[in-house]
Computed example of a mutant assay.
Amino acid sequence: MTVLESSPAAREPGIHPSAEVHPSAIIAPGAVIAAHCRIGPFSIIGADVTLGQGVAIDGHVVIDGHVEIGEGVRISPGASVGLPPQDLKYKGEPTRVVVGARTLIREHATIHRGSVGGHGVTTVGADCLIMVNAHIGHDCTLDHHVILANNVMLGGHVQIADTVFVGGGAALHQFVRIGRQSVIGGMSGVEADVIPFGAVLGNRARLTGLNLIGLKRRGFSRAEIHQLRAVYRALFRSAGNLQERVQHVAREHGDHPAVQEILAFIRGDSKRGLCRARRVAPLEEDEGEAQG
Rank of each mutant, 00 (worst) to 15 (best):
E252T: 14
D255G: 05
G198V: 07
A234V: 03
L201Y: 13
L263F: 00
A161N: 10
Q174H: 01
G137R: 00
F175H: 05
H145G: 01
G189L: 14
V231P: 07
A149S: 15
L228W: 02
G186N: 03
V231C: 03
G155H: 01
V152Y: 00
A134P: 11
G198E: 04
R245E: 02
I266T: 09
E261K: 14
R245K: 07
T141V: 15
G137S: 08
S182L: 05
A239L: 12
G268M: 07
S182N: 06
E244Y: 08
I266A: 12
G240C: 13
H138F: 02
A223T: 13
D193L: 00
L210N: 13
G209V: 14
Q159Y: 10
A170V: 01
H226L: 10
D193R: 04
A250V: 06
S238Y: 07
A149W: 01
I178V: 15
I195L: 14
G167Q: 05
D143P: 00
G202N: 09
G168F: 01
N211D: 11
G202V: 10
Q227T: 12
F220M: 14
E224S: 07
V246N: 04
D255R: 04
A239V: 13
G169Y: 00
G186Y: 06
G185W: 09
N133C: 11
F165N: 14
M153H: 14
R229V: 15
L201A: 15
D255Q: 05
E261M: 14
F236S: 06
F220C: 08
S182I: 02
A230R: 15
V166E: 05
L207A: 10
G209M: 12
E224D: 05
G185V: 08
I266C: 10
G167N: 06
R245Q: 04
N203F: 12
R245D: 09
A199T: 09
R233Y: 03
G168L: 07
A199C: 10
A199R: 09
R229A: 13
V183A: 12
V259K: 02
Q247P: 09
H144R: 15
I225Q: 10
G240E: 13
A258D: 11
Q247H: 10
I195K: 09
L142Y: 01
V259S: 03
R217G: 11
D255W: 03
